[in-house]
Design a protein around this nucleic acid. Structure first.
Lengths: 195, 195
DNA sequence: CGCGTGATTGAAACCCTTCAAGTTTAGTGG
DNA sequence: CCACTAAACTTGAAGGGTTTCAATCACGCG
């Protein structure tokens, strides 16, 4: 619960007692590596705050390709906002890349927070805007950058994940094949070595 | 102002008098086709509600390629949410594809609305979630779909824009070259004809 | 009419994928 | 702790889809 507590108290809008009371109402679950938490067709009832471990959200096309939408290491929240907010069935899978402890947040959790302290309304809005900004950068990169550029961006942005996540998943996140990523890395190593 | 009024009164949270009072405080501007409204480096002070006409947001890379992030026909709002919300310089251009009348909304406009009626807080949240859902679908499409699939999706989703927007801009939105889009359309016409 | 912009077409080059084979790494049970 | 197996990663060759560059065509507008 340490990470979650830090996440909620960082802006000073939460006392220890209030946190304890709130935390007591929440469900905390542990998922083994490989466990699937959400499947397409389900209506998302909650999001997952990752206390420890690593989750991922992805789609599988009719042709069997998987597209990774998001990784969620410690302190990240993952879910299908569309499904949760609009009460529609999701199109996403969510599964555990590592053994993971997650805190389940009901869809009205942000309202609960706002009741405790109105400052959390802004907290929530900030999270939404961050999400949008992040997605926009990704769209921009997918629109024009080469595989090599996209990989370098990924390494810069998520140096931690680069080491924790299997390479073929990074490839899937970047929208290229594992073989292509392998070759990209080979080229990069060559360049780096000749300098 | 008709479109804007409909946009604000559709959920019944606004009276005519209130709308008149609010509208009187807003700036309405007319932009000729080709006019640039926002340039990279500026900090976005407001968003644009398109009353009539058509705006577009795009980036230009160092290599000179333009990537279209968004089209905004009537009743759409366009801006760089990141820049507006975080007070950072934007990386986007915004310009007018057609002669356009737009209503300028200050960054605190959603707060003004919330003051009039708290229901607008949800209105705003819904807009944010729609934005996120839309971006996620686009990411998913860019990750795996072929040029042809992406074009068909575009036509389905924006039949109106398909006719109003020059082809090379659609290509830029889809992340392909104008030449490729021309060939894709040729193939599609062939298939359609042989049926 | 002539100019400029947008759309088309062709040929060559390029990037990435696909498929198939190896090699390495990591996890499991003896 | 080693041996074995499966998964992950690498490498090669062939193929496909897009891009690039260049030329041509179509059209609207001053």
């Amino acid at each position: 619960m340490e990470n979650f507590k830090r996440y909620l108290t960082q802006n000073g809008a939460m006392t220890d007692e209030r946190f304890e009371a709130l935390y007591a109402t929440l469900l905390v679950k542990r998922y083994d590596k490989g466990r699937i938490l959400v499947r397409p067709g389900e209506v998302c009832k909650h999001s997952f705050f990752v206390e420890s471990g690593l989750l991922r959200a992805y789609t599988i096309t009719e042709s069997g390709k998987t597209h990774i939408i998001q990784f969620a290491p410690e302190n990240w929240i993952i879910n299908d906002r569309s499904s949760a907010y609009f009460n529609e069935p999701t199109v996403l899978f969510v599964d555990a890349i590592e053994d993971t402890t997650a805190i389940l947040l009901d869809n009205d959790f942000s309202c609960q927070l706002a009741d405790i302290n109105p400052a959390y309304t802004q907290h929530n809005e900030l999270a939404l805007h961050n999400h949008i900004r992040h997605q926009q950068m990704r769209i921009n990169s997918l629109l024009g950058a080469t595989a090599e550029e996209r990989y370098l961006d990924f390494v810069r942005q998520y140096p931690d994940l680069t080491l924790r996540v299997p390479q073929w998943m990074i490839a899937s996140y970047l929208g290229i094949t594992p073989e292509s990523l392998s070759r990209v890395r080979k080229e990069l190593a060559k360049k780096h070595f000749s300098k």
